[in-house]
Design a protein around this nucleic acid. Structure first.
Length: 432
RNA sequence: GCGGUAGUGGUGAAGUGGUUAACACACUGGUUUGUGGAUCCAGCAUGCGAGGGUUCGAUCCCCUUCUACCGCCCCA
């Protein structure tokens, strides 16, 4: 490394061809599967006005208070790189009036793309990472909560993952939440000074998030804290019950985690996380998280419209696929390699590769005037099925040699035939 | 934002305050004046993340910085 003046920004990654194949595999499966559920792809900007995120994720959320990748542009606009997908989709939903009568309800959309969070990189955590997410707007049906959860699980199963744990909880509706919030404050307030510094602040701003704390000082209080499940309104209870029943009806195993809160403030009713129990991803076990939210569309100026969705972390997903040995093997094999010997053959060699490619075969040639041996080695390394050799003698006679690399058989054919009948020549190879 | 560990060629790595920085893989060439997977031979870091400092002299000591990995917080 003579002068490594340029390095990629902290927490980013270059995805090289060996890896992109893997990414494409996952994306392809997502697109195919989500289509089965009638979700359509939506693409929104990778950056938005800062307020789009601060208003939706919640002013007290960690994402907004310390992880926002934001800056002021040349027009002095306060811009933020999107830290998650929902806010932008909701903004687009409202801005494009997708709540209009001509659109399906629920309106189902999915997205695949990079997200940004300004934090210290570590296992399963990057400044630029990628999510596959879905959102469905316009129905309060618990069946939709369940469908979204089922789709995530379907996706992971299709990819071949095992040992997944689905945790669900409910945050109830506004009424339940308000009552619970008060109960929680009443419970925690007397112990306020014994809580961690962070949680003391949370107590005022967003007491539910105290439940999320991993600090041992807080944990002992969290353990005996009142449960949201005891404060659900009749309506919220009904919703919650139905979600559980439907999950059971679909044979989806789940655990109820009454202390699960989620990091974004906009959720209500059903929330869920899907994590691996695989040891390899200890610090980053959660590969998907999501839930229902009802105030967001209104917050962005649209009509009161409920939504439900999830986000899947692609980097974590890929680590898990690798850890569980279900990553697909990629095919980099060539069908043909064109060995050319001598300067004079340069033009024909180009004509030949192009002709071969025009038949739909993957083909490569040598551009470095290397020895025939070196070119064959390269062909071999690419596991090329056939090698076409063109030297000056062949050129003079208007022929080329085709060698089957697995049998070692080589035949001489006319260039004219190669250009018109290559597939036939290959097919009939064993016949004569 | 805080803490821990690390940074030598394309890769995996050894190494020492002092003339030419092991070894292996990969790659290139040759052994076979135009034909692959084997053998053997040869070549392949004026450089030890970057910038300062100590020293007669530093890849090896000190400081700063950058980056990576891991942990805390939190999350995907």
């Amino acid at each position: 490394m003579a002068k490594a003046t340029f390095q990629k920004p902290k927490g980013t990654a270059d995805l090289l061809p060996e890896q992109t194949a893997q990414w494409q595999h996952i994306e392809n499966i997502a697109r195919l599967l989500f289509r089965d559920y009638n979700f359509k792809e939506i693409r929104t900007p990778m950056f938005e006005n800062f307020e789009v995120f601060s208003r939706s994720a919640g002013d007290t959320s960690d994402v907004v208070t310390k992880e926002m990748y934001d800056f002021h542009d040349k027009g002095d606009r306060h811009i933020a790189l999107r830290p998650e997908g929902t806010a932008g989709v909701v903004r687009a939903f409202v801005e494009n009036k997708l709540y209009g009568p001509e659109f399906d309800k629920p309106y189902k959309a999915f997205y695949i793309g990079p997200m940004f969070r300004y934090e210290r990189p570590q296992a399963g955590r990057f400044r630029q990472f990628h999510q596959i997410g879905v959102e469905a707007f316009g129905s309060e049906s618990p069946a939709l909560d369940v469908e979204v959860i089922a789709m995530a699980i379907d996706f992971f199963k299709t990819l071949g993952l095992e040992n997944l744990r689905v945790a669900i909880n409910t945050l109830g509706d506004q009424l339940s939440r308000d009552q619970y919030r008060q109960a929680l404050i009443d419970y925690l307030r007397p112990h306020a000074t014994e809580l961690s510094q962070d949680s003391q602040e949370r107590l005022d701003k967003n007491p539910l998030r105290v439940l999320d704390s991993k600090d041992p000082k807080d944990q002992k209080f969290v353990a005996n804290a009142p449960s949201i499940l005891d404060y659900l309104s009749d309506e919220a209870t009904q919703h919650w019950q139905t979600v559980k029943e439907m999950l059971t009806a679909l044979n989806i195993d789940f655990v109820i985690d009454a202390t699960m809160v989620r990091g974004l403030d906009y959720y209500n009713d059903t929330i869920f996380e899907i994590m691996t129990v695989d040891d390899s991803l200890k610090g980053a076990a959660t590969i998907a998280g999501g839930g229902r939210y009802s105030g967001l569309v209104k917050e962005f100026g649209g009509p009161e419209t409920p939504g439900v969705g999830f986000g899947i972390g692609m980097e974590r997903l890929i680590s898990l696929l690798i850890a569980q040995n279900v990553a697909p093997t990629i095919d980099n094999t060539l069908d043909f390699y064109v060995v050319n010997i001598g300067k004079q053959t340069d033009v024909v060699a180009t004509q030949i590769v192009q002709a071969v490619r025009s038949f739909g075969y993957a083909a490569e040639r040598d551009y470095l005037s290397r020895s025939a041996k070196a070119q064959f080695k390269t062909a071999d390394r690419h596991k090329s099925q056939y090698v076409i050799t063109i030297g000056e003698t062949e050129l003079y006679n208007h022929v080329a040699n085709i060698k089957n690399m697995s049998t070692g058989q080589q035949q001489t054919i006319k260039l004219a035939d190669l250009y018109t009948d290559l597939p036939t020549i290959i097919d009939s190879e064993g016949d004569n």
